[in-house]
Amino acid sequence: MLGEGILKGLAETARNFLGSYVGKDRLTTVQYPEERLPQIEAARNFPFLVYDGPDWQQGMRCVSCLICEKECPPKCISIEKSKDKKPDATGKPQFYPAVFNIDVSVCMSCQICVEVCPFEAIKMDVEFELSTDDRFGGLLWNKERLARSNEYYRQIHPTEAAAVDAHLAEDRAKLEAKSKAAAEAKSSATAMVSAQPASGVAAEK
């Protein structure tokens, strides 16, 4: 019968229309901004700089190694390395970025800066309501705008942050153990060298 296919299709639209009142899978839209979908944990938008401790200037993990600036595909990062060293959150003197700018109008959220950073200093944010009417001022983010605490990182990407924290703690423990062992070996070696030169080799091993 001519028109049967159209009737079948109309039955389908009717099913979807009525179904949208009962089934959540037929009505997937929400009334943004009053209503929001839950944040997906792995989501990424623009980068931010992680700092440890309460003071963002002191705790910044970035040591201004310029790797991300070089690897960034659209070249949206611009860093100026500091001339002097300042103590970081653990008290170790480090270089720091005198200037760290990201032009988010150029950034394409590819996450390559995060992947190449050896210091876990740059991570991806999830904030997306960033519209501004100032193309140069509003979209050129300086390091103050980019700095976010590690607590914030833990809050937005809990799984990833936990892995990063564990990894950093492990590194730190290793480093401490190493320096401790080195110091011990040194002190014992000097002690032994004076007493018994032959066993000093074994202690160093």
Partner: peptide, 10 residues
């Protein structure tokens, strides 16, 4: 054109 974060050739 004005570029806030110039690099290399730019």
């Amino acid at each position: 054109e004005y570029e806030p974060t110039p690099h290399d050739e730019v």
